[in-house]
């Protein structure tokens, strides 16, 4: 797992987490209203988004499964 989830109901659309995430994991949704986890594979579990979100809408776990290695991709 990476960043677990962002609670849509709690999110107040402030966009702070989009700027905070150093890995560009979080973006705003298609309607530009709520934060979504756009690129979970690149989450490095730094926790900065969670620390910054004033609404406590972001949940980050402790586990990170390394992706499978394939012959090419």
């Amino acid at each position: 797992m990476t960043i677990d989830r962002i609670d849509r109901d709690l999110c107040n659309s402030c966009r702070l987490c989009v700027f905070t995430c150093p890995m560009d994991v979080i973006r705003m949704d298609a309607d530009n209203v709520k934060a979504i986890i756009a690129y979970p594979d690149d989450c490095m579990l730094c926790g900065l988004c969670m620390v910054d979100c004033e609404k406590n809408a972001i949940f980050v776990g402790a586990d990170r499964n390394p992706p499978l290695i394939t012959s090419w991709g």
Binding site: M44, L45, V51, A62, R64
Partner: peptide, 9 residues
């Protein structure tokens, strides 16, 4: 938890 280094903080 190899990626999890920030527990204390």
């Amino acid at each position: 938890y190899p990626a999890y280094t920030m527990g204390m903080e």
